[in-house]
Amino acid sequence: MTLFQIFVLAVAGFTAGTMNAIAGGGTFVTFAALVVSGLPTLDANATSAVALTPANLASVAAYRSEVRAHFREMIPFAIIGLIGGGVGALLLIWLGDGGFRPLVPWLLLLATLMFAFSRQIRLFVARWSQGQHTVAKLVAYVVMMIVAIYGGFFGAGVGIMMLAALSIIESGDFHKANATKILVAFLIQVVSAALLIAGGLVHWPQALVTIASSALGGYYGVSLARIVPEKIIRAAVVAVGAGLTTVFFLR
């Protein structure tokens, strides 16, 4: 790697770790930076997934008080994350770069739309959060499983869908939901990363630079999550996602 590539990956990693701690969307940044550094799309996706795993662990550590307080309630979602992350990673390996590359612009478009219409998504599911209906809980768990599989496969936009599913069951405590989201995302990435590493898709020099910088961003991003309006970060994520979607559709 050149010094410029190291700098780009370090900045991208720190930015992604911070974004994931606040609102999600960090995969947009690291995936793009890794593609720019010369990796094939499949390898860039796999390397990005592995590189962002420590950042999510750092964010879990920063949210340790919420995790300790609500750990029992998080266990079902944790199990879903482990299973779904494994299924998504296996699907990615099975497709290979030839099958994954044509999906990239559509996956980026889907993730960008989820971010852009996150408020409408939350309003749509808000009525389900009024009370503890069995059907509402079932819907939430089904959505979480789908999101977990998607997270193991690609990951961009997974945070907003998790928060939407969690709001069906719990409402009013953003930091509790955000802590649950970060814990589950971490578990998805642990399983996914293990399988992707076993599949030989991870480029370690690029991954190590991104790991170190994203872990710093993931830890300090929680402090920003408590003071920076979420809509500001989300607007930036949508802008980045829209730009990347356009680029990959034109490639």
Rank of each mutant, 00 (worst) to 15 (best):
F4K: 09
Q5G: 10
I6V: 11
V8A: 07
L9Q: 11
A10T: 08
A10V: 06
V11W: 05
G13L: 05
T15Q: 08
G17E: 05
M19V: 14
A21T: 10
G24E: 05
G26A: 03
G26N: 03
T27F: 03
A33M: 12
A33Q: 06
L34C: 06
L34K: 06
V35G: 03
V35W: 03
G38M: 07
L39T: 08
A44S: 11
S48L: 15
A49L: 15
T53C: 06
A55V: 12
A55K: 11
N56V: 11
A61S: 13
S65T: 14
E66M: 12
R68F: 10
R68S: 10
H70I: 15
F71R: 15
P76H: 04
I79S: 08
I79T: 14
G85T: 13
G86N: 12
A89L: 15
A89R: 12
A89M: 15
L91W: 09
G96Y: 03
G96K: 05
F100T: 10
L108M: 12
L109T: 04
L110S: 03
A111Y: 00
A111E: 00
A111V: 02
A111H: 03
T112H: 06
L113R: 08
M114E: 04
M114Q: 07
F115L: 13
A116M: 11
F117P: 10
I121T: 15
I121W: 14
V125W: 13
W128H: 10
H133T: 12
A136E: 02
V139T: 08
V139G: 02
V139R: 08
A140V: 13
Y141T: 13
V142C: 06
V142H: 02
V143H: 05
V143P: 07
V143I: 14
M145R: 11
A148I: 09
Y150K: 01
Y150Q: 04
G151Y: 04
F154M: 09
G155R: 11
I160Y: 02
A164I: 08
I168K: 11
I169G: 00
S171A: 12
G172P: 14
D173K: 13
H175N: 07
H175S: 09
N178P: 08
N178A: 08
T180D: 09
K181P: 15
L183W: 00
A185S: 13
A185R: 03
L187F: 01
I188R: 03
I188C: 04
I188N: 02
I188W: 01
Q189D: 01
V190W: 04
S192M: 14
S192I: 13
A194P: 13
L196D: 03
G199C: 09
G199R: 05
H203E: 07
Q206A: 10
A207Y: 09
A207F: 07
L208G: 05
L208D: 06
V209L: 08
T210K: 07
T210P: 12
S213E: 01
S214P: 04
L224K: 11
P229A: 02
R234N: 01
V237K: 05
V237N: 00
A239N: 01
V240S: 02
T246V: 14
L250Y: 01
